[in-house]
Each structure stands twice: as C-alpha cells, then as structure tokens.
C-alpha cells in the first residue's frame, strides 16, 4: 500500500540548470500537491509527458528524495522518518540507477540479496526463478557492461526483486525495450499483481497504461489532473481512447500553467 498525501517537491535549480531549462526562476515545482493511493493487488499507472514529475514522485516514494511538503506512507512506514523500513519493503527500478557494469548479473543479485539480509538458499532459489523467467540464465556470468540494453534492464528488474518486495515501484519499465521484451516485463508485473503486491509504474505510453493499469493517474506539470480506471477517465472526458482523453486534459491544464 502506498499513500501519497499532498506531496510537493520543489527543486532548487543551479545556474546551469536554469539555463538548460530556459527559466529565470531558481525554483522548480516538479510535483505539486499530489495525493494518491495505490492498493495491494492493483497496478497504479502514473501517466504523463516528459518532465511531468513522474520520476520525482516515484523517487520520493522510494525514499531517495525528501518531500518539500506533504508525506508518503509505504506499508505503514513514513518515507522520511522510517526510510530504512520502507526500503526493506520496496523494489525500485529507474533508468538513472544502474548495476555495476564490471559485475555479472549473478554477482549483483547475490550482493543485493545479502544487503537485504535474504538468506543464501532463498537468494539461490529466487535467482533461478527470476533469471529463467527473464531468460538471463545464459548470460548470468557475463559482465553487465557486455549485455544488450534489454538484457541489462531485465537484470535490473530481477535484482530489484531479490528480496520479494511487497511494493513494486517501476519508473518507465519498458523504456527502450523491444516489444517482445516489453511484453515479458508487463506480463511479469501482472503476475506480481496477482500475487497481491502493490505495483506503481510510470509511463508515457498510452497503450501500456490502457492494457496494464487498473488505475491511472494523469499528471501534467506536477499536478494530478485526472484519476480513475480507464473507463472512468474515458467517461469523464467523453472520449474513446486514452490518447484522446489525455489531449483533452492536456489542452486545459497545460494552458493554465502559462
């Protein structure tokens, strides 16, 4: 279970970042008063364009960033006050966080298993299961730097699940993957959901959100502009698919910003 209560995250920009983002303000409100609840046995999808604040929100859940305002509770633990306990419960995947390129998937799996205090037999068992599901077994002793993008991503996913976390937070999990591998990953997310895990993902791919997510939160410029099941969102906006719904909302809310 993830509960985000009125989360606001403001970045203080350096001079260089101000130039890069073409702004004169030195503060960036990346997430603005966001509240949501993701429940066990459900896949929650944060849908939004690049720069909407998806990664920022997920990093706050994963305890890597501290909320500027508001708070987040994961499995009953506050992400700031009890961050270590939260980290025990979560599996987090984001493309900026990588596995050591000099090590093999097998070594990394065992290393993080040990950091999570999983006992050796269990690590072994889970590795065999996950590696065979993601077809990493043949490559498990190769250095990660020698693997293809897809294989790297699958290895990262496997490693993030070494401690069988009850909350899964995946930031654009199919980003850069071919359709077969992407399907492999989304199928596994469904499997996790069926096991009763809480799953939250971010995506900018409409069809992925449509097919995969039980609940979708559309986020534009850091604010949640609509939330519900696919049906609810389509009904509310009077559209036939998610892409149309998104652009309806985008027209209204992106204007407000300017």
């Amino acid at each position: 279970m993830i509960q985000i209560n009125e989360l606001t995250k403001i970045y203080k920009l350096t001079k260089k970042q101000m130039i890069e983002q073409k702004t004169k303000k030195d503060l960036k409100r990346a997430v603005d008063n966001l509240s949501l609840v993701a429940k066990p046995g459900e896949i929650y999808g944060l849908l939004g364009p690049n720069g909407a604040g998806k990664t920022t929100a997920l990093r706050c859940i994963a305890t890597l960033l501290k909320p500027t305002e508001g708070n987040i509770v994961v499995s009953g633990f506050d992400t700031v006050k009890e961050s270590e306990k939260v980290r025990k419960k979560i599996g987090f995947l984001t493309n900026e966080i990588k596995l050591d390129p000099q090590f093999s998937p097998k070594y990394m799996f065992e290393f993080f298993g040990k950091l999570h205090k999983v006992d050796d037999k269990l690590i072994e068992e889970r590795r065999e299961k996950l590696f065979s599901y993601f077809e990493i077994t043949d490559f498990q002793d190769k250095k990660i730097e020698e693997l293809s993008t897809g294989m790297k991503q699958k290895a990262s996913i496997a490693v993030s699940l070494v401690h069988d976390p009850e909350v899964i937070i995946f930031d654009e999990p199919t980003n850069g993957l071919d359709i077969v591998t992407a399907r492999n990953v989304t199928d596994y997310l469904k499997l996790l959901k069926e096991q009763g895990k809480t799953v939250i993902i971010s995506t900018h791919i409409m069809t992925e959100a449509e097919k995969l997510c039980d609940k979708i939160g559309i986020i534009i410029n850091g604010s949640k502009v609509s939330e519900g099941s696919l049906e609810e969102i389509l009904n509310r906006t009077g559209t036939r698919d998610l892409e149309d719904a998104f652009f309806e909302l985008y027209k209204i809310h992106n204007k407000e910003e300017e």
């Binding site: 890597l64 980290r87 987090f92 900026e96 990588k98 050591d100 390129p101 993080f112 950091l115 999570h116």
Partner: peptide, 15 residues
C-alpha cells in the same frame, strides 16, 4: 559510481 549511477542502487538497500 555517482556518475555511473551505481551508488544510488546501494542507497536503495535497507542499510
């Protein structure tokens, strides 16, 4: 490790 983005994976572990 900061540059390569590998230290963050350690920051995610419950230690």
């Amino acid at each position: 490790e900061k540059e390569r983005g590998t230290i963050a994976s350690m920051l995610l572990s419950p230690i």
